[in-house]
């Protein structure tokens, strides 16, 4: 899923200063699962904003809407009947959703209420961790399911580096060294000889380095 974090309240309230009719938009997909921008988080943020503004003597009208997805046009379209009743959209969807709503409704300003952080997994209830960077050229077959691009701070392909101490990355003591994990996995599977294969320089043009990416399936286009 795409993982996000709610922005600090002061930042949100500062963005909303000029506005009094707010459409607060959530998303039922990734940001619901990572508890950053689902219906529950929308309700809590709306309540917080209402309380703050009421206390300041500048009450706001907030409509809380959580779309099935903010990244598909058919759901974004459902905002049409009422979006013009508001001064601004405050979106708790990921960066994709925030932009997509803005693209559809050109006369509206869509403000972000979250910082979109990474593609990750739920390690345990309330703990999410990064697993993929969308580099566009997956190497998980070579590293037996542990991504060196994402989980190594340097994205090394022939690791570990000298900063790996006792299986821990020097960047953060809570981060396991990805290459230690990969070597352990090779051992576990009796495939340690694979570690001796030198990986060539990666072609990063399939990643962000090649600019914004697009995927087209002609057979599905209408």
């Amino acid at each position: 899923m795409i993982v996000a974090d709610r922005k600090p309240f002061e930042e949100i309230i500062e963005m909303l200063k000029p506005y009094s009719r707010i459409l607060l938009l959530g998303c039922n997909e990734c940001v619901t699962v990572c508890a950053a921008g689902g219906a529950k988080e929308v309700a809590v943020l709306a309540s917080e904003i209402r309380l703050f503004r009421a206390k300041e003597g500048k009450p706001v009208e907030i409509k809380e809407v959580t779309l099935e997805r903010n990244c598909d046009p058919e759901y974004v379209e459902t905002l049409k009947p009422f979006i013009d009743d508001f001064d601004v959209v405050l979106s708790m969807a990921c960066g994709c959703g925030i932009q997509f709503v803005g693209e559809r409704y050109r006369n509206m300003i869509v403000l972000p209420a979250v910082n979109t952080t990474f593609y990750g997994v739920t390690e345990q209830h309330g703990v999410w961790a990064e697993r993929c960077q969308g580099c566009g050229n997956c190497v998980l077959d070579k590293t037996l399911g542990i991504c060196p691009v994402t989980r190594c701070a340097k994205s090394l392909f022939n690791g570990p580096c000298g900063g790996s101490q006792g299986g821990v990355c020097e960047v953060n003591k809570d981060t396991p060294c990805a290459w230690q994990l990969i070597v352990d996995r090779y051992k576990e599977m009796g495939m340690l000889d694979r570690y001796l294969e030198i990986q060539p320089v990666k072609d990063w043009s399939t990643s962000r380095d090649g600019g914004p990416r697009k995927r087209i399936r002609e057979d599905l286009k209408i």
């Binding site: 309240f9 002061e10 809590v44 917080e48 904003i49 309380l51 703050f52 206390k55 300041e56």
Partner: peptide, 8 residues
């Protein structure tokens, strides 16, 4: 935390 943030 939330109530501290919003000044209540």
């Amino acid at each position: 935390q939330l109530l501290d943030e919003c000044g209540i």
